[in-house]
Every structure is written in C-alpha cells, then in structure tokens.
Design a protein around this nucleic acid. Structure first.
Length: 589
RNA sequence: GGACCCGUGGUGCAGCUCGGAGUGCACGCCGGCCUGUCAAGCCGGAGGUCGCGGGUUCAAAUCCCGUCGGGUCCGCCA
C-alpha cells in the first residue's frame, strides 16, 4: 500500500494495470508498465510529438504517443509503455511522476467518451446544480476524490479507535417504530400490514439503550440517521454519525471515549496538528458568545452591562439584560444600518451602536443615543469592555437569553469571515439545562430527549424551579459547528416516571410511545450513557469545506431533490394501492 | 411558512443601473498548422427559447408581475 497526496492510498496493482500513475518515478526507469485510466489532457505538437496525460486516482502520468492515435479527453485507456527519464529541462515538479514519462506506448482504448459537460479543472468554480446533475463526473475532480478519501480515512480511524477501546459494532434497524418526540421522521408504509407504518430512525437512540440492557457494555455503530427536516449547508435528510453507548460509566468516561476517537481522526488526517479539547459550561458559552456552539476562533466576546444601565434615561436599554460587544472589524454607517435590520430580523427590538472617539485624549461615545447617556454610563461601558479609540460597540437589550443569542448571531456574522481556517478548536459544552423552556401550557420541554439524566445536585428543583435544573448532557463543538451530543441516561423507572410527570407525559402516553423501553428497564438496566457525532460535519471541517454536500457522494439539494436521478418521483397508482394508500390533497402546516 | 442572492451557446463570466439587431471575453468542441509541452501555442469554424409564463413599450436579456430551479439564512433540526 502506497500513500499519495489527497489521501489516496494505492494497493498493489492488479488486473489490467501494473502501475499507478503517481507511483512511477525515476527509480523505475527502463521498466515496461501498464497504466489504466482516463485521458486527462492532450498536447499536440505536430506529427512527431504528442503528449497524453493519463489520469488515475493517484494522479497523472505523461505518455509520448504517435500522432496516429485517435484519442480524446476522458476516453478510458490502457497504455503499455517504457518508463523513461524526461529530457533535461522538461521535468514537471508539480507531478509525482514529473521526472519520467512513458515512451513507445501501445494504446488500448477501453471506452470512448463524449465531451464531458464541464471542465474538471480545479480553478473553475461550477454551478452546484450542474455538478449534481452529473455527479459521477463531478466526483472525478480532485476536490471530491480528496474529500471522499479523507472521509474514508476518518471512518477507518474511528473504527480503530472504537475497537481499541473495546466497543462492539452492532447494526440496528432502519425500519423502526414511530417515536413522536423530536425530529420529523420519514414514514415507510407497510405492504403486509396496510395502513401501518415504519419510520426511518432519526437516530439509533432507543435501540442502543436496549443493547445496554442486553449487556453488551460498549456498543458503537457508524450509523445512518434520517430526519425529515429542512436542509442546510450542514444538514441533509440522511447523515452519518459515530453512535456509541456504554454501561457503568460516568459523563467523564464518555467524554474520554469520544476524545480518543477524535484524536485518532485528527492524527490520521492532520498528523502535524495537535489538539486540545477543553470544556466550558453552557451558561458560560451563552454569556460569552451568545451561542451553545460558539466559534471561538475570534474574540469579540459579549459583556453583560445590565448593571451599568440600571437607571438609564435611554428607553431602549430599559430591559432585564443589556449585552455589549466590540465589533471585530471597523463598520461603515451603511453596514451598521444593515446590522440593525438583521438584529430586528432576529427578533431584537433594536441594535444600539456607539463609536468610541478620542477627543483631546478623552474617550467619548458617538451614537444616536449619546445625548441620553450619562457620563458615568459612558465611562463605565468603555471600562467594562476595554474599548479603545475607533472601536464600535454594539448592544442589545432584552430578556437575557434573547439578548445574548441575538448579539451572538451578530458576532458570528461579523467575525466568522475573519476566523483562521487552520485552527481546529474542539471543545465540550457541559451543564446544559434539562429543559429548554416552557410550552404554551407552562409545561417544560425536553432540551435533549426525555431519557436524559438530570444533574443529581439539581434534583430537588425539578418541581420548584425546573428551568434551573441542569442535565448530564454534553455537546462537542468544532469551529462553531455542533458535531454531536450525548448524555447519561435515566435507568430507573422511579426517575423516569418523575421526568415524564414533569414533562406532562402521562403514563398511558409514555406506555404507548416507549412501552418496550420501559418494559426493558424493568428487567435490570445498567447505568449507561452515550454520545453521537456527525461524521459528515467532522469530515467537512477537516477538509476545509463549508458544506457537507462536498463530503457526500450523492447529496440532495436544499429542496430535497436528487438532480441526478430526479428523486423524489411520483409512483404508479397500483403501487400505492398495494400499500393501501391513495393520493389526496396535501394539508399545509 | 419567511428573507436575501443567482439563472445569458457545453462550462465560467460580462452585458441589466440608463430598453434600441444575440453584442463581448475566457474555457471547451470541430478543422488546420506546429518536434518538448504540461491550463502548450497560433489560425479558422460551429454552437443561443438570455430558466419559463404574462405585462408595459414602436422596441425587453435589460423595466414590472408571477412561476420554476439552485444557493445562503430565519423558523424547524428531542
């Protein structure tokens, strides 16, 4: 096995070839070799000198062929030729095979090809719709070859790490039972039991907990998950997770398992990089960055300045919470107006901006509201933020979570373009709230899922102050993307019943939704917990891509279409009839 | 459900603000020339429903309305 650039690893040549393009170099001069691949480029210099570059997944090799050969780009060929050193001064340092070429070749055309619909040249930025329509051609490009091979190495490193740590790989069903909590599920009609449905699992969550009850102790799976929710740059209908669960462990053990796997992955694809995986609390993340998955590669942290404005004359600052930050880059007046609109679009009442100016050695604030700001407020604000001349201060006033979240979004929009692409900033976010808020009836809503174990120190507040209860759950974040999350699970029926009660899920409902899980827990459930992280996202960030579609061979568009196959498509009425289904007008939600 | 951006020969763009003949650039394709190129070079040629529909106008790629497709984001994603 020979490794090349772009994460390609060539096996021993076999079949129609005796060598790969990039494995040919001056050490093999004189050998007669057979290479196979696609005609990458043809350079004709007249009757006696024609260069043909043959491409395989390792790279290209130059062949000097007689002009009589009728060849075109992307034809599939087998070339038998003698490895020869190039004449002095004609080496190509950009190619692994750039010091040699194949001479006196025999060319066998294995398949002709029509002109391809777009260039494979890396420098041409293509419309994504065109790429997706001809994905099999797009995948020939170096970028996609590299990305998918990187992903393969990521998978491999994860498997090695899991096996090293004693995890057993077990597959769980793709045809599962509906679980009304959480993401919208894809339905699969049953033919043998008309009017009944399976669902495609949004994750193997419950299955893996049952494997703990079964005593497998440490389970993992590189699992496909399916969620019928709107797509984004970092979200497809189907995505792949490293899913794991372990018994008789605590939160810190789970974090160690995952950290081990993450380190193995980084070691495999970026051996020159060492990473630290530190930990911050959810509240800290929210206070400092206004996000539970902050991008910490740039500063511009948030500051709570509520107390400075407790007696302010500025009505806009009369709110439970006032948050401020220094913009990470200078902002024009037009840009500030845009930001105000954006903040309003995010639900803010407004966005206050103040420019720090230096007049006669004194810092003062220039802003639409400066004349309403007391000198004391101005001085304290400048001091609290450590503001300097020419800084722009941005402020949002509202209820705490809304204020930090909106300012956090503004921060991200301003700072992300400045972030260093080479940094890998992994960290854990811990101590999430168990509930993320109250529904319209005042009932708490699960932040993670209803099997998440509360923090034992907060148990007493489940009834009195449920929103303050922390959970034993944790997220892994990389460069501002949520890679994954996990938790310690509830394994006793007493606690589970208590949580269902707080969530307003009565016993009948619980039984109908999760009866099989609750039954299983009666027969001896070990304490257990687990985690899952998205391999599409991890691979994308390691590949320097901003979109997981670049790490997926055949992705869907934002509207859920496959532009190559045309899916989703209508099916014949008799197929629907077999399933006991009939078309009807869609009800809008 | 909502906001914004994009759609012009096979590909990538410009043209649109301020309406005047499908105008231009680069790549690719076809033909010719060319003995050391590697994004080869030079000469010539073919190739268009300006996404689609409607409107305004003497006249629409250009202005207006609608619609379809692609993208980014909000909602949504336990």
């Amino acid at each position: 096995m020979q490794p090349f650039d772009n994460y390609a690893v060539a096996p021993e040549p076999a079949g129609l070839r005796t060598a790969y393009a990039s494995s040919l170099n001056e050490s093999r001069v004189g050998e007669v070799v057979q290479v196979c691949g696609w005609v990458n480029r043809i350079r004709e210099h007249g009757e006696h000198l024609v260069f043909v570059d043959v491409r395989d997944f390792t790279g290209v090799v130059q062949c000097v062929v007689p002009r009589s050969e009728n060849l075109h780009p992307e034809w599939v060929v087998q070339i038998t030729g003698t490895v020869a050193e190039r004449p002095d001064g004609t080496d190509n340092a950009q190619l692994a095979s750039g010091r040699i070429e194949l001479r006196d070749p025999t060319v066998r055309v294995l398949a002709e090809a029509e002109p391809i619909p777009f260039s494979l040249d890396e420098r041409v930025e293509l419309d994504e719709a065109t790429r997706l329509r001809y994905r099999y051609i797009d995948l020939r490009r170096t970028r996609m070859q590299r990305n998918l091979r990187l992903r393969s190495i990521v998978n491999s490193a994860i498997r090695h790490s899991m096996e090293e740590q004693g995890f057993v790989e077990i597959e769980t069903p793709l045809l599962w039972t509906p679980t009304p909590e959480g993401a919208r599920e894809f339905l699969v009609p049953s033919r043998t039991q008309p009017q009944n449905f399976y669902v495609l699992p949004q994750s193997p969550q419950i299955a893996k907990q049952l494997l703990m009850v079964a005593g497998f102790d440490r389970y993992y799976q590189i699992a496909r998950c399916l969620r019928d929710e709107d797509l984004r740059a970092d979200r497809q209908f189907e995505f792949t997770q490293l899913d794991l669960e372990a018994s008789f462990v605590t939160q810190s053990d789970i974090l160690n398992f995952i950290s081990h796997a993450i380190r193995a992955v980084v070691q495999a694809v970026r051996p020159e990089t060492t990473i630290a995986i530190d930990t911050i609390t959810w509240r800290d993340a929210m206070n400092r960055y206004g996000s539970d998955k902050p991008d910490r590669r740039f500063g511009a942290q948030l500051h709570d300045v509520t107390s400075i404005f407790s007696e302010t004359q500025v009505k806009a600052l009369n709110a439970p919470s006032v948050q401020a930050m220094i913009a990470p880059s200078p902002l024009s007046r037009a840009r500030l107006d845009e930001l105000v609109d954006r903040a309003k679009g995010l639900g803010a009442k407004g966005l206050l901006w103040l420019r720090v100016e230096e007049i006669d050695g004194q810092l003062s604030l220039n802003s639409p509201v400066s004349k309403f700001l007391a000198d004391r407020e101005q001085q304290q604000l400048v001091a609290a933020l450590g503001a300097k001349a020419n800084d722009t201060i941005l402020m949002v006033a509202d209820e705490w979570e809304r204020a930090v979240t909106i300012l956090g979004q503004i921060r991200l929009g301003l700072g992300r373009p400045l972030a260093d692409q080479n940094i890998l900033d992994f960290f854990w976010v811990i101590d999430f709230p168990l509930f993320e808020g109250l529904d319209e009836f005042g009932t708490p809503i699960s932040a993670h899922h209803p099997f998440t174990m509360p923090n034992e120190d907060d148990f007493a507040r489940l009834d009195t102050d449920p929103l303050s209860v922390r959970s034993q759950s944790y997220d892994l974040v990389l460069n501002g993307w949520e890679l994954g999350s996990g938790s310690i699970r509830i394994h006793t029926s007493a606690i589970q019943s208590k949580i269902f009660e707080v969530l307003g899920i009565d016993e009948d409902t619980a039984r109908s939704r999760f009866g099989f899980l609750l039954d299983a827990f009666k027969y001896g459930a070990p304490p257990h917990g687990g985690f899952a992280f998205g391999i599409d996202r991890l691979s994308a960030l390691l590949a320097g891509e901003e979109n997981i579609r670049e790490l997926i061979a055949f992705p869907k568009t934002q509207s859920g279409s496959d532009l190559m196959t045309g899916a989703p498509k209508q099916v014949d009425a008799d197929i629907l009839a077999q399933l006991g289904l009939q078309p009807t007008a869609r009800t809008k939600d």
